[in-house]
Amino acid sequence: MKLNKNLAVSETGFIFNPTSGDSFTANEIGTEIINLMKESKSIADIKTALLDKYDVEGNQLEKDVDDFMVLLRDNNLIQYER
C-alpha cells in the first residue's frame, strides 16, 4: 500500500492530488492519518498512535481505519502493490 507522495496537504484539511487534479477535504483524524502515511509510517503504527491519542475502542478504530483506506483507494490516493 503506497500513498501518493506528492499529495499537497494543507493545515486546514485540504488535499490536492496533482496527478489527477482532484481536491479533497478531510476531517482532523483523516488529515492526521494522511500526514503519518506521508512520513511512511506503517498502518499498524498509525493505528497504535491513534489508539493512544483518542478515546476509542480498538475494534472501532480498526474498522474505521480500514474503511478509510478503502476511501483513499477509491479516490485513487493510494495504490496497493501487487
Binding site: F14, S23, T25
Partner: peptide, 10 residues
C-alpha cells in the same frame, strides 16, 4: 488557483 476553488468548496 486551486486554493480559491478549495476555499469556496469547503
Amino acid at each position: 488557483d486551486i486554493e480559491d476553488f478549495q476555499k469556496i468548496s469547503a
